[in-house]
C-alpha cells in the first residue's frame, strides 16, 4: 500500500533522515519507536509534505507522492495527525471535523465518526481550543478519518495524555483498522500503548531504522533498551 524508498530529509545542509525504507500493507499497523530527536516527527512531516524530502520516493497504491503538495497527498489517500494535535483552536469541533471533508464528495460528517468518538458529539458546538488534550487528540483523529484515508499517519498520539485516555485511543485505533482495513503508521515512545496496537515495530535512531520486530513476538526488553536514555 504505502512504499517508502530511500527517503532523505535535510534541514538546510544537515541531513537528518538518512535513507529510510519501509512499506505497509492494508489492515496493518506499523509503529515507529524512538527517543526524542531521532527523526520521528521529521519523517512524518516529510511523508505528508510539510517538509520537502531531498531524495527518495513515497508511493501510495502505485502513485508517486514525493514532490506533490500536502493537499494532493491527502487527496491521494494519506491522512495526518500531527504531534501536538494541531486542531484549529478558534473553530468549533464540528467545523474542525468538516475541514477534513475537503477531498471527499460528501460534505456531511458521517455518523460513524460520532460512534467512534461519542465525546465529540456532545462537544460539537464548542471551540476546539477549549477541549482537553485527550479530546483534542480524538478530534484530530476524527478530522483525519473523514477524508477516508488509505494510510493514517499518527505522530506521537499519546504525548501529554492521561493513561486512561491512552487506553481508549488504543482501542479506537484498533477499531478503526478493523472497520476500515486501512494501514496505520504511528510514531511512539510509550511501549505498552504500542504493544496493544502494532503488528510490526521498527526502532528509529539518528534518522535510520536500526531494528525491526513482529508485534506479537516482540522482545520488549530489547526495544525498551533502545528507548531508554
Amino acid at each position: 500500500m504505502l512504499e517508502v524508498r530511500d527517503l532523505r530529509v535535510s534541514y538546510g545542509q544537515s541531513e537528518v533522515i538518512h535513507g529510510i525504507d519501509f512499506s505497509t500493507a492494508a489492515d496493518e499497523t506499523l509503529a515507529i519507536m524512538g527517543r526524542n530527536g531521532m527523526g520521528k516527527t521529521t519523517l512524518f512531516k516529510s511523508l505528508i509534505g510539510i517538509l520537502p524530502a531531498s531524495s527518495g520516493s513515497i508511493v501510495l497504491d502505485g502513485r508517486e507522492l514525493n514532490e506533490l503538495p500536502s493537499h494532493e497527498r491527502v487527496a491521494a489517500g494519506l491522512a495526518y495527525v500531527p504531534q501536538g494535535r494541531m486542531i484549529f483552536p478558534s473553530l468549533t469541533v464540528m467545523e474542525n471535523i468538516e475541514s477534513g471533508l475537503e477531498t471527499v464528495k460528501t460534505k456531511k460528517v458521517p455518523d460513524e465518526i460520532f460512534e467512534l468518538f461519542p465525546v465529540l458529539r456532545d462537544m460539537r458546538g464548542r471551540k476546539g481550543g477549549n477541549l482537553s488534550g485527550g479530546q483534542q487528540q480524538q478530534l484530530a483523529i476524527a478530522r483525519a478519518l473523514v477524508s477516508e484515508p488509505k494510510v493514517l499517519l499518527l505522530d506521537e498520539p499519546t504525548e501529554g495524555i492521561q493513561p486512561s485516555i491512552i487506553k481508549d485511543i488504543a482501542h479506537t485505533l484498533n477499531e478503526i483498522r478493523r472497520l476500515k482495513k486501512i494501514s496505520i503508521v504511528v510514531s511512539e515512545q510509550v511501549l505498552s500503548f504500542t504493544m496493544s496496537i502494532a503488528d510490526r515495530l521498527v526502532v528509529i535512531e539518528k534518522g535510520k531504522f536500526i531494528h525491526e520486530e513482529e508485534g506479537k513476538s516482540a522482545n520488549q526488553e530489547k526495544i525498551a533498551s533502545y528507548l531508554s536514555v
Binding site: I50, P69, V74, P82, F88, P89, S99, G100, E102, A144
Partner: peptide, 14 residues
C-alpha cells in the same frame, strides 16, 4: 478560517 489559523495543517487536511 482554517488557513488563517494554521496554514501547514490546512494543507495536511487536504
Amino acid at each position: 478560517r482554517c488557513t488563517t489559523a494554521n496554514r501547514e495543517m490546512s494543507g495536511a487536511v487536504g
